[in-house]
């Protein structure tokens, strides 16, 4: 596949099992270049597992996954290295390295993959920290000294360190107060608009889905129930979908509270 093709991620007939438990029965979806693609669904429906398969942390039992024109099946570590370099991942709980400062966290992938002068690396780390919406004073702090919202932004800064063309965000707004979450929405959109990123976002956050996502895939019980814009999904008459989108917000709120724990 030509890397300039419009399709960035192509997932076909993926099945995943953990022992007897079937996580994905038959999942297929495509993500196009430059869009913000959201994966929604209840907790435990297999969203995070799919994400882990997309970023080569886990392998599906069957089916094929193509990311940026590379087939992930049977890919060795050596081949995966340039691919890993071209995407950034922001984990749900940040996964910042606790023994490094925020600036060192951001600089780590740059130092690992590029041969740049010390000064430039430091400056680039500062640029990413600023782009993620953190004050410069956050740079020399350790992750333990940051609030939850700041930690998310620091994780985003690290995910963007190598100017990836593809960015994966796992629950970017979970555990944030509404104001920070709104700020994060805008941040995500401005990154896409200005850097031309493709974003894959896993979220429960209905606001994020409505305000930011171009297309949404809704997962339940290992299947994709629907893919489309939020408008299309919310007018779907599938019982699960309409319950999710039209039911009382209790469910979403409950999930939020549980995640925020």
């Amino acid at each position: 596949m030509d890397p300039r093709d419009d399709t960035v991620i192509d997932v076909r007939h993926v099945c995943t099992r953990f022992g007897a438990q079937v996580v994905h029965a038959d999942v297929s979806l495509t993500v196009r270049r430059g869009e913000i693609f959201a994966l929604a669904g209840a907790s435990g429906c297999g969203k995070s597992t799919l994400l882990r398969e997309l970023i080569l942390l886990e392998r599906p039992a069957s089916g094929s996954i193509c990311v940026l024109g590379h087939d992930l099946a049977g890919m060795g570590e050596e081949e995966a290295r340039p691919l890993r370099r071209s995407w950034g991942v922001m984990f749900e709980r940040g996964a910042l390295f606790s023994s490094l400062t925020v600036a060192e966290n951001v600089a780590l992938p740059i130092r690992e993959h590029e041969h740049l002068g010390e000064r430039l690396v430091d400056e680039l780390a500062a640029v990413k920290i600023a782009l993620a919406g953190l004050p410069p004073a956050a740079g020399p702090k350790y992750p333990a000294e940051l609030s939850g919202g700041m930690r998310k932004r620091a994780a985003l800064a690290r995910a963007m360190a190598l100017d990836p063309e593809l960015l994966f965000l796992d629950e970017p707004t979970a555990g944030l107060d509404p104001l920070s979450a709104t700020g994060f929405d805008e941040l995500v959109r401005s990154l896409r608009d200005n850097l031309g990123l493709t974003l894959v976002v896993i979220t429960h956050d209905l606001d994020l889905l409505w305000r930011v996502a171009d297309r949404v895939a809704f997962m339940a019980d290992g299947h994709i129930l629907g893919v489309g814009t939020m408008k299309e999904l919310s007018t779907s008459d599938h019982p699960v979908l309409s319950q999710y989108f039209h039911g009382p917000r209790g469910r979403s709120a409950w999930d939020q509270a549980w995640k925020a724990r």
Partner: peptide, 15 residues
Amino acid sequence: MIRARVADRAESVRA
């Protein structure tokens, strides 16, 4: 965007 977001001197941020 960089002009707007990044403060005037992105000086070294190491401790």
